[in-house]
Amino acid sequence: MTSASASPSTDPYPCFFYGSLMSTRVLNSVTRPGPEANLISVPATIQGYVRYPYHNAPYPGMIASEDTTQTVEGLLVFGHTLMDRFRLDQFEGSEYTREILPVKIHSPVPAAFNVMDGKKPLQVGDVVQSYVYVFTGPHAHLDQSRPWDYEAFRRDHLDIWMNTSSDFV
C-alpha cells in the first residue's frame, strides 16, 4: 500500500460525491484506479445545498439552497490522483463546476489521508475543504419538485446505465 501523503501526482483535496459517483462501480469506471491506488471513502455531508434529479436522466445536480441549514449526504473520497481528477472533470461536463467547499465527515480518516495536515487523523464532525461538482447549468434542467434518491438510482438505474451509457462502454 502506498502513502497517501501529497505528491506531485496526488491531488491535495478529497472529493465529495453526492450522486451517481457515490457508487463504487460508477466511480471506478470513471477514474480507472490502478492496483497501486490508495483510496479511502467516508460518509459525509455538505450544508447549504440541495440535490435534484436532472430531467430525464438518472443522475442529480446539486445547487445552493435558500435554506442554509439543508444538507446533502454523500461520500468523501481521499487519495485520487491528478489523472483521476482530470477524468472526473471530463465525466462531469460543462454543466458542473468543480469548487472547493467545506464538507463534514461522518467517519474517522487516518492521518495519512489528511494531506492538509498529515500529522493528525480526521475525526467524526471535522470539516475539510473538498472538491465538489456543483451544478451550474440552467436550473430548469433539474426537476426541483422532488429530491434525488440514491437508493432509487441504485435499484432502478445503475445496472442499465452502466451497460448502456457511452461513459462506461
Results as ranks from 00 to 15, higher is better:
87 R>P: 00
52 Y>C: 02
62 M>C: 14
10 T>N: 14
114 N>D: 02
141 H>F: 12
147 P>N: 07
77 V>T: 14
30 V>I: 12
42 V>H: 07
158 L>R: 09
56 N>A: 14
97 T>W: 06
156 D>E: 15
9 S>Q: 13
8 P>G: 05
123 Q>W: 03
63 I>R: 11
24 T>Q: 14
76 L>C: 10
89 D>Q: 13
44 A>Y: 08
51 R>W: 02
46 I>N: 10
10 T>A: 15
60 P>R: 01
8 P>N: 08
155 R>Q: 08
9 S>R: 11
40 I>M: 03
163 N>K: 08
119 K>M: 10
66 E>Y: 04
47 Q>M: 05
7 S>I: 02
146 R>V: 15
123 Q>F: 04
64 A>H: 13
150 Y>L: 07
165 S>C: 05
97 T>C: 08
32 R>V: 14
160 I>D: 12
49 Y>A: 04
121 P>S: 06
22 M>W: 08
155 R>L: 03
73 E>L: 13
43 P>E: 10
7 S>R: 13
68 T>H: 11
19 G>Q: 08
42 V>F: 04
44 A>N: 00
152 A>R: 13
2 T>K: 11
126 D>N: 09
138 P>D: 12
51 R>N: 07
21 L>G: 08
25 R>S: 12
76 L>M: 07
78 F>I: 01
32 R>I: 14
55 H>L: 10
49 Y>T: 01
72 V>E: 01
78 F>L: 01
95 E>F: 06
106 H>C: 07
97 T>Q: 10
162 M>D: 05
3 S>I: 01
1 M>F: 10
107 S>H: 10
73 E>P: 00
51 R>C: 13
91 F>W: 03
33 P>S: 05
43 P>M: 09
160 I>R: 09
81 T>I: 01
90 Q>D: 14
10 T>V: 15
28 N>S: 07
65 S>H: 04
42 V>C: 06
151 E>S: 13
119 K>T: 15
32 R>L: 15
154 R>W: 04
147 P>F: 03
110 P>D: 07
60 P>T: 09
19 G>T: 03
23 S>V: 04
148 W>K: 00
82 L>H: 15
40 I>C: 09
73 E>V: 00
158 L>Y: 01
133 Y>G: 06
73 E>N: 08
105 I>S: 00
110 P>A: 08
169 V>L: 11
3 S>R: 04
33 P>A: 03
169 V>Q: 05
134 V>E: 15
81 T>W: 05
41 S>Y: 11
25 R>T: 14
126 D>Y: 09
99 E>P: 00
90 Q>A: 12
38 N>E: 13
70 Q>D: 09
130 S>D: 05
165 S>Y: 06
48 G>E: 05
99 E>L: 11
147 P>A: 06
143 D>F: 06
121 P>R: 03
4 A>K: 05
97 T>I: 00
161 W>A: 02
109 V>H: 02
7 S>D: 07
113 F>M: 10
36 E>K: 10
162 M>H: 09
94 S>N: 05
145 S>I: 01
93 G>F: 03
